[in-house]
Design a protein around this nucleic acid. Structure first.
Length: 892
RNA sequence: GGGCGACUAGCUCAGCGGGAGAGCGCUUCCCUCACACGGAAGAAGUCACAGGUUCGAUCCCUGUGUCGCCCACCA
């Protein structure tokens, strides 16, 4: 590979380049070279300013989807640009153990062998998961490399590495000491499929078509009945009270009476509680503390019994009477049927309501009473909201700060224990003798009472370790050079879907344990959605493999597309045709480079000699300077879409469409040796900076071209970011605009008479407004180039009084008139119609401008320059109108 | 129930106080010695609707509609 690179440096550059751009032979080659040369390595100590990003660690179960591709493309763009700008860049890579997701994957594999995890036992099962992780867990890392991610791979971390696990235990113990972690028996979200508790965030609420059942509860004294409504008749066995609102005129006389729970026959009281809404149904609400979050609180308020009627798998338990052993949904049917039979079911109406589902397996979540660990979030949240308000952390776009506040201000305690085997085991031990709880980083020998200890069976929520990621990956709790140099990180780049799961919790933990926010900026990007506009996610199984796209179009094409489509506040619907568009752009860049290489010959890095520059040379240097300045701003401000589109337009619309065309004669030698070498010097300088500016977005193709140009022995990523203004001595764009307008006007006239593009015509005539001396000079100096672009032999300048040539098409502005003598090709009727059409449009414009100018309010209140502009426009339009009229008259 | 966002050319989307842009598609002409993954020219939009602010609104404000998303303890 080294030989190959050496071989294409210098004037042989062209040999290495195929006629059209093909990413396949380029991308792996250069990635290997980058790794070999260690250009992604961060320095723990450095004189350079630091720039750091921690990767949102992908799940080990995952394979790269377009969301990852976008997320990591944006991070890579920032890292590569910052390296070129002289920063000591750390992009910290790694993966997340993804508790439930990974456990599920391995359990599924076991099931195919006819085994359950219980058959293996905890230790063997966990070993099995590690084996799975070691075999498949690095797949996504390989995919990130295909994408071009410039992470410092030597630092790759995993949330269950020993170091990170130590950080987890440390944090748990510290929070426990500060009473910010507690254990208690509460009603939590339970997944009867995964057999674990979930946090509120892990429950996805979906609008579901259900039934609202009206059930009669007979009064215990036999004096009639009370009707209550429920969507979950299977929980009737767990009812402990009926609540009515204390100010409910209809029902409050019932308070204190007893009613009989249907089917099971228990007598329960009617109580008063604000939860009951007098407007809803009969105003009477059944209270089932063990199976409904609201009822749970009512139960606490009134000291009611908690009767659990289901087991952990969502089956009716021994409290379920004759339904014991039945699945909850079967039980619902059976109980409903029995209620109907007994004449106690008085209504069954369709009812749309929100039902919680497991975010991992989509099973319906059961509110379940159990003993769990919780993080007390309120005290943590308040400080964090302050940090964002103070501006210590900045959301980009800002609107996301609002989302963050809204959640943080309503935050509830975080259930962190999970009944899984895969994850960080909770560092708590229970004494088998005295029952005391010992929480400590290392396993204690025995209880303080001398009794035997048993460790808590549960593991921590995956997001608990993710929350520590910005500092646990840098060696915390040790005081490391990495933490010193790179914490707080510069920016976090992620999607809004994990603001609560991850961003907010990182802020909590960072503020609490590092006493500093984990990042300065949070850049929130759009979600890449599938063709139906649905979120792509592992559990939905609708992920599109970007590797297919990379195979087909190349990583650069995918990267450029994602960057170009990244606009704040709007989701991305990715289609292949859009990727194709941008791959065409890469081909354009490729071929423009081939053109440059063909024409550079041996010229390399010669000084630009200002004496031999022409209008277009000065113009492209001026434009390059503008573009460089804008790109630098875009990189600092996270304007990814703008930056990609700017380069697209500049390279294609200006560099290729105009500059390269105009420089052809000089490069061919038609304008003499001095002009040739001056053009080569400009070409060389422009491509050098264009490749650099594009490199963060499309690293592979720019590296290949860089080496073909032979811009130096070093890799492009090691070079300095271009500086705006270095060409100011030579740059200038005066006259170019006029020339472009003139050329377009002439091409337009040619098309009017359907002249084939190649066909030369002898002449066109231009009459300039008297004051346009500089334009006259411009035309004289560049008549050869105007001729080149318009295929016109000669541009004749007419004096102000001079007659226009007969049988001409004309194009008129307020400043000049262009005549194209076409002889017999002239279709007088058609030309008059065309000119009348133009007149028409012009008059409409003039009418608008006139009415504006005759409005005293406009004159009085609009800024002077706007008024002046309108007046100028009107004058120009009047001149234009007069000329068009004259031309029409001349034709008639 | 609360909040957020979108609505611009046939399609996918930029723009966001001084009379509207791109890519694809479409029409016409071109295989011009970097590129047909290309070149040149062109057609195409009451900028969702209604009010308001302003000299002036696609852009700001209010409301309406449609679609999408997030949050919430909707029996």
């Amino acid at each position: 590979m080294k030989e190959a690179v050496a071989g294409i440096i210098g004037h042989n550059g062209l040999d290495g380049l195929s006629k059209s751009y093909d990413p396949a032979p380029i991308e792996d080659k250069w990635y290997a070279r980058w790794i070999k040369d260690g250009i992604f390595k961060a320095e723990a100590k450095s004189g350079k300013p630091p720039f750091s990003i921690v990767i949102p660690p992908p799940n080990v179960t995952g394979s790269l989807h377009l969301g990852h591709a976008l997320d990591n493309t944006l991070q890579d763009i920032l890292c590569r640009a910052k390296r070129m700008q002289g920063f000591n860049v750390l992009w910290m890579p790694g993966t997340d153990h993804a508790g439930i997701a990974t456990q599920n994957v391995v359990e599924r594999a076991l099931r195919e062998e006819g085994l359950a995890r219980e058959d293996l036992g905890r230790e063997a099962f966990v070993k099995r998961v590690w084996e799975w992780k070691n075999e498949y867990g690095s797949r996504i890392i390989g995919q990130l490399k295909k994408l071009g991610a410039s992470c410092d791979w030597d630092r790759e971390r995993f949330t269950m590495d020993e170091g990170l696990s130590r950080a987890v235990r440390k944090v748990f113990v510290e929070l426990y000491k500060k009473d910010l972690i507690y254990r208690g028996k509460y009603l939590i979200n339970w997944c009867p499929r995964c057999l674990t508790a979930l946090s509120d965030l892990e429950v996805e609420h979906k609008e579901t078509e259900g039934r609202l059942y009206s059930v009669k509860y007979l009064f215990a004294d036999g004096s009639g009945a009370l009707t209550v409504m429920t969507t979950r008749p299977e929980t009737i066995m767990g009812d402990v009270a009926i609540a009515v609102h204390p100010r409910d005129e209809r029902n409050r006389h019932l308070i204190g009476r007893g009613v009989v729970v249907p089917i099971c026959g228990r007598v329960i009281p009617v109580i008063e509680d604000n939860l009951a809404d007098p407007e809803f149904g009969t105003g009477a609400l059944k209270i089932t503390p063990a199976h409904d979050p609201n009822d749970f609180l009512v139960g606490l308020r009134h000291g009611l019994e908690q009767i659990q009627v289901m087991d952990d798998r969502g089956r009716m338990n021994e409290n379920g009477g004759k339904y014991a052993g039945m699945d909850r949904f079967e039980a619902r049917k059976a109980i409903t049927a029995d209620l109907a039979e007994a004449g106690l079911l008085t209504g069954e109406d369709p009812h749309v309501h929100s039902v919680g589902h497991c975010y991992r397996c989509d099973a319906v979540i059961e509110p379940y009473l159990s003993e769990q660990w919780f993080v007390r979030t309120r005290p943590l949240a308040d400080a964090d909201v302050e940090a964002v308000r103070r501006g210590d952390i900045r959301f980009v776009p800002e609107q996301w700060a609002g989302t963050y506040y809204q959640w943080m201000e309503n935050i509830r305690d975080w259930c962190v224990s999970r009944q899984l085997w895969w994850g960080h085991r909770i560092p708590a031990w229970y004494c088998l003798d005295c029952g005391e709880v010992t929480v400590s980083m290392e396993e204690p020998d025995k209880c303080s009472c001398g009794g035997h200890l048993r460790q808590d069976e549960d593991v921590l929520d995956t997001w608990f370790s993710s929350a520590l990621w910005p500092f646990s990956t840098m060696g915390w709790p040790d005081e490391t050079d990495e933490l010193e140099t790179f914490y707080p990180t510069s920016v976090l780049v992620t999607g809004f879907d994990i603001i609560f799961f991850w961003v907010a919790r990182m802020i909590m933990m960072g503020e609490e344990f590092m006493e500093a926010p984990p990042f300065r900026d949070v850049y929130i990007h759009a979600l890449v959605r599938d063709e139906k506009g649905q979120k792509m996610s592992k559990s939905r199984g609708n992920v599109i493999d970007p590797l297919v796209i990379i195979d087909k179009f190349g990583a650069d094409a995918l990267r450029f597309t994602l960057a170009a489509l990244t606009v704040q506040g709007r989701d991305i619907f990715l289609s292949e045709s859009r990727i194709e568009t941008y791959r065409f752009f890469l081909n354009k860049l490729w071929n423009a480079s081939r053109f440059a290489l063909m024409n550079l010959e041996n010229a390399r890095d010669t000084d630009i000699d200002g004496r031999y520059l022409r209008l277009h040379d000065r113009w492209i240097l001026a434009r390059l300077s503008d573009v460089t300045k804008q790109m630098t701003e875009f990189m600092d401000g996270y304007y990814f879409g703008e930056s990609a589109r700017l380069m697209y337009d500049f390279v294609w619309g200006e560099l290729c469409d105009w500059y390269l065309e105009l420089s052809k004669p000089a490069l061919r030698g038609d304008e003499g040796e001095m002009r040739k070498s001056a053009s080569q010097a400009v070409l060389y300088a422009v491509f050098r900076d264009v490749l650099k500016l594009l490199h963060p977005i499309i690293p592979f193709v720019t590296e290949e071209l860089w080496s073909a140009f032979g811009y130096g022995e070093t890799l492009i990523g090691r070079t300095e970011w271009p500086k705006a203004g270095v060409f100011d001595t030579y740059a200038g764009s005066a006259g170019m605009d006029f020339m472009q307008t003139l050329v377009r006007a002439m091409r337009n006239l040619r098309a009017e008479v359907k002249l084939p593009p190649q066909q030369q015509v002898p002449r066109m005539c231009l009459r300039l407004k008297d004051s346009l001396g500089h334009a006259a000079a411009c035309v004289r100096e560049n008549s050869d180039l105007i001729g080149l672009l318009t295929k016109v032999g000669k541009t004749e300048l007419l004096e102000s009084g001079e007659m226009a040539p007969r049988q001409s098409l004309s194009s008129v502005t307020g400043e000049w008139e262009l005549f194209f003598p076409v002889g017999d090709l002239l279709d007088v009727e058609k030309e008059i119609t065309r000119l009348r059409g133009e007149l028409n449009k012009l008059e409409k414009d003039m009418g608008r401008t006139r009415s504006k100018l005759s409005n005293p309010n406009f004159i009085g209140k609009a800024p002077a320059e706007v008024v002046a502009k309108e007046q100028e426009a009107l004058k120009a339009a009047e001149r234009q109108k007069k000329r068009i009229e004259e031309n029409i008259a001349g034709l008639e």
